[in-house]
């Protein structure tokens, strides 16, 4: 990127002393390191999901599980549309966040307020979508630890598998894979949802502080950058969750 080359030309070697070789404040560096550790937590979840999927003989089909849309009726066949909408909402709230950070770099208080408001709205919209999706799946009997009864009729799995897989798989295979799939689905999207929810709380605190002029008095909007890093990270995790659960 062209701006990167514009960073201060070092007069001494990076580790020669007298200045920070990293050129960031303590708080921002620690936010990055926290996000690194959080990235490992999320990837542990996602990779063990991959492992579990790998050793199951059959697996629920994403286009069959996620095919409904609010207000579209019980028999709507709109695979992937709702989750794509959620993805777009989160990406757009990430964009409004980066615009808030940008306004912060220019000490533009009104700009920060405007873009923080949009970011908060995006976050709440995303959480509402997730609440709808969870409710919908719950109505199809999916939850943590569900589908453990192998004597159950094949019919209970009809919302989750392709017809040919549903017809050919053994009851044990259907039970084990559906149980595993939903344990991981609710754990991972739930853990991500918790991150979004805390992000929204942080964003609201940020908005209140901005309106009160706390950052204006401080002379910089670095707190917007730090919370912005967290918010982008939440978006980043969703990019991977989207791929792992809905595409692969």
């Amino acid at each position: 990127m062209s701006q990167a080359t514009a960073t201060t030309a070092p007069t001494t070697k990076a580790f020669g002393g007298g200045r920070s070789p990293f050129n960031v404040s303590y708080g921002k560096m620690m936010m990055w390191f926290f996000l690194l550790s959080d990235a490992f937590t999320f990837s542990a979840f996602l990779i063990s999901y991959g492992t579990t999927r790998f050793f199951n003989a059959v697996w629920p089909d994403a286009n069959t599980v996620f095919h409904s849309f609010p207000f579209a009726g019980a028999h709507a066949e709109w695979p992937l549309m709702f989750v794509s909408l959620m993805t777009f909402i989160l990406i757009l709230s990430s964009v409004t966040m980066v615009l808030a950070v940008h306004a912060g770099h220019y000490n533009d208080k009104q700009g920060v307020i405007k873009w923080m408001l949009w970011t908060i709205i995006g976050g709440i919209a995303f959480l509402s979508c997730q609440a709808w999706e969870w409710t919908h799946l719950h109505h199809q009997a999916a939850w943590w630890g569900s589908f453990t009864d192998i004597t159950a009729s094949r019919d209970v799995y009809k919302h989750f598998f392709k017809p040919e897989v549903l017809a050919s798989a053994t009851p044990e295979q259907l039970s084990q894979s559906t149980n595993n799939f939903f344990n991981f689905f609710f754990t991972i999207t739930g853990f991500h949802g918790c991150h979004v929810a805390s992000g929204v709380v942080l964003n609201i605190m940020l908005l209140v502080n901005t309106v009160n002029g706390t950052y204006e008095r401080r002379g910089h909007y670095e707190m917007v950058e730090k919370v912005g890093l967290y918010w982008h990270f939440v978006d980043l995790v969703w990019v991977f969750v989207f791929t792992c659960f809905y595409l692969l």
Binding site: N23, V24, E225, D235
Partner: peptide, 15 residues
Amino acid sequence: IVKVFMHLGDEVKWF
């Protein structure tokens, strides 16, 4: 996202 939105591309090399 990391390079542009999180501004990692704008940080110094060592960071």
